[in-house]
Amino acid sequence: MSLSAEDLHWAPGGVPILRGVTLRLPGRGVLGLVGPNGSGKSSLLRLMAGLRRGTGGAVLLDGQPMARMRRRDVARRLALVEQDAATASALSVREVVALGRPPRRGAWAPWSAADEAAVAAALARAGMQGRGDQPWATLSGGECQRVQIARALAQEPRELLLDEPTNHLDIRHQLELLRLLPHLGARVVVALHDLNQAAAFCDEIAVMQDGRLVAQGRPAQVLDAGLIRDVFGVEARIERSGAGLRIAFF
């Protein structure tokens, strides 16, 4: 069992944002969450991370309702990297990543060799090894995003949720970050805007529209011209080859 949403509704103030979403993570690999702006991607990730509670349905972790679990226990299983995670600029890279360790430590426990090893491993997985002493304020946008991912990995999660991690990055840093996803040591759910990137880097894709999940499966099974027209309101041509598929818009 893993993380799932089961008939999940969220209607803050009576305004429906999520409408009966059932989403299950694949057994392994990267699940891409795509959809137009306002389709509910970020809201779904926050509910699945336990930061908000739905107004109907449930988020399950290993078959148990997350709402009944202690926040500390949830944080030991999964981590969320939001679009604009705030970090004090005076910290070093290592200090930022160490902020992910509290769920794994006792309230009064001293910093340990296990904590140090977890921080080092998280930096290595995020491709930031050897950069621990660098001031956070000197990092590029792509490096900042890698460090935020390392901070989440320091929790040692089994599921990692990423909300549009390529936002505001140039194309080189987008591709570098996306290539990391299969190697992070966790099941990954990542919200993306770019359908070609989702098709290239995700093992499965889940498509959101107006707060509903309208399709989920392998990119070649899910992405076709009809779905793209209906969901995104644009015409597209799907080009398939042995390397996968590419979407041309017109």
Rank of each mutant, 00 (worst) to 15 (best):
S4G: 10
L8S: 04
W10D: 04
P12K: 01
G14N: 06
V15C: 12
V15Y: 15
L18C: 02
R19E: 09
V21R: 09
T22E: 11
P26Q: 11
P26G: 02
G27H: 12
G27F: 08
L33P: 10
G35N: 04
P36T: 07
G38A: 01
S39C: 05
S39V: 00
G40P: 03
L44S: 06
L44F: 04
L47E: 08
L47T: 03
M48C: 01
A49K: 02
G56F: 05
G56M: 00
G57M: 08
A58I: 09
V59E: 05
R68P: 13
R71F: 13
A75W: 05
A85V: 14
A85M: 15
A86H: 15
A86M: 11
V93W: 02
V96P: 08
V96R: 07
A98L: 05
L99Y: 13
P102G: 06
R105A: 11
W108F: 12
S112K: 11
D115W: 01
A120S: 14
A121Q: 12
L123I: 02
A126P: 08
Q129V: 10
Q129A: 15
P135E: 08
W136Q: 03
W136P: 07
A137Y: 15
T138R: 13
G142E: 08
A150Y: 00
R151W: 05
A152Q: 01
L162E: 03
P165C: 02
N167F: 00
H168Q: 09
L169K: 02
L175T: 13
E176W: 09
L181C: 01
H183I: 00
L184T: 03
V190A: 03
A191D: 07
L192Y: 08
N196H: 07
A198G: 01
V207S: 07
G211M: 00
L213V: 08
Q216L: 13
Q216V: 11
V222G: 04
L223N: 04
D224R: 04
G226S: 13
G226L: 06
G226N: 13
L227R: 06
I228T: 04
V231E: 09
E235F: 11
E235N: 14
I238L: 05
G242T: 14
F249K: 08
F250C: 15
